[in-house]
C-alpha cells in the first residue's frame, strides 16, 4: 500500500479535531484513504432535517487529482445521478491541490443549498427543476423525508 502522506494525516486529524458544522468525516479503520461522511441537509434547503451518507476516496495521486466522492443516500438533486455520483466543478476541472477534503465537503453542502439545473447530471430532474421549481423542491423534500432519516 502506498504510504499515507503527511498531508492526508494532517487533514484527517483536523477533520476529527476541528469538524465543520453539519459534516462528519471518519477514515475507514481498514483503509486510511477511504472516508465515511455524513452531511446534514442545509437549513432552508429541501434537505433540511435529513442526514446524508457519502463515501470519499483519495486516489494515489491525491492531492494532484481530486478526491472521489459519491452519495450513498438517495437524493433528488439535479447535480447528483441515480448512483450518487456528483457533478461539481471542484471534483473535476476546477480541482486544485490547494483545496482539501474539507473544502470539497463544504462545496457539496453548498451545492445542496443551491442546486444548479443548468449543469445537470440527471437531465430529468434538471428539467423538473427548471419547469416546475416548486414541484421539484416538493419532491426533493419528500425523498429527503423518505431516504435521509439518518
Amino acid at each position: 500500500m502506498a504510504s499515507l502522506t503527511r498531508r492526508i494525516q494532517k487533514e484527517t486529524e483536523r477533520l476529527t479535531n476541528d469538524p465543520v458544522i453539519g459534516i462528519s468525516a471518519h477514515a475507514d479503520p481498514a483503509n486510511p484513504r477511504y472516508f465515511h461522511i455524513q452531511i446534514a441537509g442545509p437549513v432552508s434547503s429541501p434537505y433540511e432535517g435529513g442526514l446524508f451518507e457519502l463515501e470519499l476516496f483519495l486516489p494515489d495521486d491525491y492531492p494532484m487529482c481530486p478526491p472521489k466522492v459519491r452519495f450513498l443516500t438517495k437524493i433528488y438533486h439535479p447535480n447528483v445521478d441515480r448512483l450518487g455520483r456528483i457533478c461539481l466543478d471542484v471534483l473535476k476541472d476546477k480541482w486544485s491541490p490547494a483545496l482539501q477534503i474539507r473544502s470539497v465537503l463544504l462545496s457539496i453542502q453548498a451545492l445542496m443549498s443551491c442546486p444548479n439545473p443548468d449543469d445537470p447530471l440527471d437531465p430529468q430532474i434538471a428539467r423538473h427543476w427548471k419547469e416546475d421549481e416548486t414541484g421539484a423542491i416538493r419532491m426533493a423534500t419528500e425523498w429527503c423525508r423518505q431516504y435521509a432519516r439518518g
Binding site: M1, R33, E55, R70, L83
Partner: peptide, 16 residues
Amino acid sequence: MQSAVPRNFRLLDELE
C-alpha cells in the same frame, strides 16, 4: 505499490 481502491469506487471505474 498502489493503495487499495474501495469496492464501490472500483466498481464505478468499471462502470465508466
